[in-house]
């Protein structure tokens, strides 16, 4: 077992030295830190303008976490998407495979290197996260969960990139595919959710009866005859499962929310969470509005929505982990030696 890890360590350090630790990489981290600093300042000032007092920190914190997720998923495919086929092109894959390094050591080492690289963005953001969490008085649970989920999601993207670089012969193509996979999860799920919800619609009847005469207390005593009109409402409740696979939603859904006095979430996570969770609720097919009987459509608070609906983040996370492991296993089957078959036009050396 220790032989396995020492081989893994060799590949990991080699990968970091060879592929990642270059001048342009440090420039990228520098730009990233500058961007986060700008975001932190702008969000702080903006929230002060809205009068959010001590809780502005929670919003800053969640914004930074999302920013790290965004940049991490944008950068990780570029760094991991040619990990294996790039080596083949450079003629260094076969010379590694002919040593005592096993295929799993090679693949996991490369995956860990890509993951560590993506986590460097998280590390660079730590000072800002500390500031925001102190100002926002975040709960330890929220901090732990958000960072943990973020780290796992970055690992998923790294694994998909490394896996595709083993499965696909050409580096350019595998990098593009990795980006498409990230886009499918981040944006594709959103599009599928919206289109699905809009495609399937339910007829909703609205029966309204308005007050025509009021007593001195302002209550209606006589009302108009009930007017019925119908409209069609999208059925997002049938497609909320699609959104569960979205990494931003997974993150938001997993983090324990905190609410203000009116039951509104204090951070971006909570807002997205309540939005996604309310999609689970099927639209009422009969909406009654009657001023005489004081019957009004109820709008539940974000807190009520979140408390009454099903969390879906672990489903999404499981899907992501299956994708990541599947990509790595696929790459293993594809590049293991002695090779049974070669891809079209691919040279083993």
């Amino acid at each position: 077992m220790s032989a396995f890890f020492s081989g893994l360590w060799v590949i990991l350090t080699l990968e970091l030295r060879q592929r990642v630790r270059t001048a342009s990489w440090y420039v990228l981290i520098g730009v990233f830190v500058a961007l986060i600093a700008i975001v932190t300042v702008v969000v702080s000032v903006a929230l002060r303008g809205f009068g959010a007092d001590d809780l502005g920190g929670a919003a800053i914190y969640s914004t930074i976490i999302y920013f790290v997720l965004l940049l991490g998923t944008l950068v990780a495919p570029a760094l991991s998407g040619n990990a294996i086929n790039g080596d083949r092109d450079a003629g260094t894959l076969a010379t590694t495979q002919v040593t005592l390094i096993t295929t799993w050591q090679l693949i996991i080492g490369k995956f860990l290197a890509a993951w560590v690289t993506a986590l460097a963005f998280l590390a660079a953001a730590v000072p800002f996260l500390i500031y925001a969490s102190v100002v926002g008085r975040l709960s330890a649970a929220a901090i732990t969960v958000s960072i943990l989920i973020l780290a796992i999601e970055l690992g998923v993207v790294a694994a998909i990139g490394v896996g595709l670089s083993g499965l696909v012969a050409r580096p350019l193509f595998s990098v593009v595919l990795s980006y498409l996979a990230v886009a499918a999860l981040s944006i594709g799920t959103l599009i599928a959710f919206s289109l699905g919800g809009l495609a399937v619609q339910t007829e909703v009847s609205n029966v309204s009866s308005y007050g025509t005469d009021y007593n001195s207390a302002g209550n209606a005593i006589t009302c108009s005859a009930p007017e019925t009109y119908t409209y069609r409402a999208p059925r997002f409740d049938l497609f909320w499962g699609v959104l569960a696979a979205n990494p931003y939603v997974v993150l938001a859904d997993a983090v324990p929310s905190s609410f203000d006095r009116n039951g509104n979430p204090t951070d971006l996570f909570g807002q997205i969470k309540s939005g996604v969770r309310s999609a689970q609720i099927a639209p009422e097919t009969l909406v009654v509005f009657n001023e005489c009987t004081n019957t009004f459509p109820q709008t539940p608070s974000a807190r009520d929505v979140i408390d009454s609906t099903t969390p879906g983040w672990f489903v999404g996370l499981t899907i992501h982990l299956i994708l990541a492991v599947g990509a790595l296993v696929g790459a293993w089957a594809r590049i293991r030696t002695p090779a049974a078959r070669l891809g079209r036009g691919s040279r083993i050396a």
Partner: peptide, 30 residues
């Protein structure tokens, strides 16, 4: 562990020095 192969394709880790290339190769053999 008993066979050494010198391929016709000349690949090398471009950013590593000659010495560390050989050190890494040696460590790949445990």
């Amino acid at each position: 562990s008993r066979m050494g192969w010198m391929p016709d394709v000349l690949g090398s880790w471009a950013n590593l020095s000659v010495r560390s290339t050989l050190e890494y190769a040696a460590r790949m053999y445990g």
